[in-house]
Amino acid sequence: MGSLPGVDLVTQARDSGSCLQPIEIKLTALPDNTSCEFAEDYYGCEIVVRPDTIVYLACSIVENFRPNPSALGSVITGKLANITDWTEAISVIPYIPDMIDCIDAIALSLIDEQKPFLMQPIWKTEGKSPVQR
């Protein structure tokens, strides 16, 4: 099946040195290239999420549902079973609202088990200038 991709940072217990939590680090520049000419109130940023981050997020969801896999089935709507070809946008796009509902239901069902997995330092510049404030 292969190995898991590397993670940016792993926290460890001080007493035992055992690994506690993987943390992905996503540096975010503010403003991004599309909003750097706007007034500060209209700055936007782009968050780039690596495919590795998605793998760890999926593994976390699976791990939380491992004791009760049927609970995952109860939050996933049956409408998604109607998608016949996941490679064709025309088959998937009509189900995007249902997918969003499923993601929300999964996130809410795991609210008490959630742990931080992403650190997002912000690098704020003046327009395109690399000068930090």
Rank of each mutant, 00 (worst) to 15 (best):
S60F: 14
E63W: 10
E88Y: 02
L80D: 02
K128R: 11
K115W: 06
T34V: 14
K115I: 13
Y95V: 00
W123E: 09
Q12G: 05
V7P: 00
G17A: 08
N33G: 04
S109F: 03
G78D: 02
L30V: 15
C102T: 01
L118C: 14
S74C: 04
F117V: 03
K79N: 10
I106Y: 03
A39Y: 08
F65Y: 15
S60D: 15
L108K: 00
P121A: 06
M1K: 07
A107Q: 08
I96C: 02
S129D: 15
Q12A: 14
W86G: 05
S60Q: 15
F117Y: 04
V62P: 04
D32F: 09
A107T: 01
P116K: 10
E37W: 10
R66S: 09
I47E: 12
V55I: 09
D41F: 12
C19R: 11
G6T: 01
N82Q: 10
G6A: 01
I111Q: 06
P51D: 09
I23W: 14
T53K: 07
K124R: 15
T11S: 13
P121M: 07
L4A: 13
P51E: 10
V55E: 07
L57S: 13
D41H: 14
Y56K: 11
E24L: 01
P31A: 09
S129L: 15
P69Q: 05
I100M: 12
L80K: 03
E24T: 03
P22C: 11
A13K: 01
L80S: 04
P130S: 08
